[in-house]
């Protein structure tokens, strides 16, 4: 009997989603104890939900690239570029005094335009990595710089201001208690889940990450799929850029360059293997929630500067990698 429950326990511990769930519960309890009355409030939860959306969507972008055996270090720059473009477009149309059209349609149109830009950037990455065989790390590092450069040219190095209020007010809309941003994140997560777990494209992505050579020999068109994968990543990045501009009513070329590490952290936390071939969307969502909770909790301690967070994130990334490794690789004992 004891043996059976031992096996059952092992099975649970092996499930990455379950691990995160336990962590999340631990954080909630911890937070409730440390900051009674302040942590577990609706207002706090709303604030957490609002903030994590941008990271979460970027994490989804990095996630799909990681599963395919690569990575996308340019997502933040794509997001910024898109934020800059939509901010500029809106401030020059709705924001100008002689605008006579429908603001709503303008917003929709600009969003669509900007998402197209994101797709193009992503496709560029996909071609570099697939057709031109540049390693994902180098390709996206380089393309990120290029996109940063383009953003700098567009804005002359300044931040975009003058984003019309009708746009920025959107971020305040709540459905039930959850803000629009969060809804967008969940929407993206659901779509990604459907793609990764339910379509053959998602399975192909996984297989390319598992063994790209075998995928090629099995007739999978690696190059075409890689372009699609990175296009999706670029698209998600653009969405993140849109809601980021919405929330802050400004955008600049080099905003949030530390987000990339945070996104990778969310992916690793969520059970994605940096080597490819392993990972799932629910893990990403849960990981994003947990980590945002931790961040908010740390914020509540007034005397803790934000830079302590960097230490925590960095250390957490390393610890998570090691824990995942130990739990997943217990079979080889060499020396």
């Amino acid at each position: 009997m004891a043996e059976k429950s031992g096996v059952y326990l092992k099975k649970i511990m092996n499930d990455p989603i379950f691990r995160i769930f336990i962590l999340m519960s631990a954080v909630v309890i911890f937070g409730a104890l440390l900051m009674p009355g302040k942590f577990l409030t609706a207002g706090n939860m709303t604030s957490i939900a609002k903030q994590l959306s941008e990271y979460g969507i970027l994490a989804l972008a990095v996630f799909i690239c990681m599963v395919s055996g690569g990575i996308d270090l340019s997502v933040v720059y794509i997001a910024n570029l898109c934020g800059i473009i939509i901010g500029t477009m809106l401030s020059k149309t709705i924001g100008s005094s002689d605008f006579a059209g429908s603001a709503a349609w303008m917003i929709v149109f600009s969003s669509a335009a900007v998402m197209a830009v994101g797709c193009v950037c992503g496709a560029l990455n996909g071609i570099l990595i697939g057709k031109l065989k540049v390693p994902a790390m180098l390709a996206t590092l380089g393309s990120g710089q290029l996109i940063l450069g383009i953003s700098t040219v567009i804005t002359n190095g300044q931040a975009i201001t003058g984003v019309p209020a009708v746009f920025t007010k959107l971020s305040g809309i709540k459905f039930w208690i959850l803000p629009l941003n969060f809804q967008v994140f969940i929407f993206c997560a659901v779509i990604m889940y459907m793609i990764m777990s339910r379509t053959s494209f998602g399975l192909r992505t996984l297989l390319i990450g598992s063994n790209s050579k075998a995928a090629f020999f099995s007739g999978i068109n690696n190059n075409r799929d890689l372009v699609k994968i990175y296009t999706i990543s670029g698209l998600l990045a653009s969405v993140s850029g849109i809601i980021s501009t919405m929330r802050m009513s400004s955008a600049k070329p080099d905003y949030g360059t530390s987000y990339i590490m945070f996104s990778i952290l969310i992916c690793v936390f969520g059970g994605t293997s940096p080597n490819g071939g392993k990972g799932n969307v629910p893990g990403i969502v849960l990981a994003a929630i947990v980590l945002q909770m931790v961040a908010t909790l740390m914020n509540m301690f007034q005397n803790l500067s934000t830079f302590y967070r960097d230490i925590v994130w960095g250390a957490l990334l390393l610890i998570m990698l090691i824990i995942n490794y130990i739990l997943d690789n217990r079979h080889v004992t060499k020396r």
Binding site: L203, S210, A214, K278
Partner: peptide, 26 residues
Amino acid sequence: LFLEQALVENVAVTHLADLSSKAGFY
């Protein structure tokens, strides 16, 4: 082979289109 994947995926990989709907659902 995809060593870290199950036999199901290893067998299905060459004809995923046959095992999916037109919309791409596997």
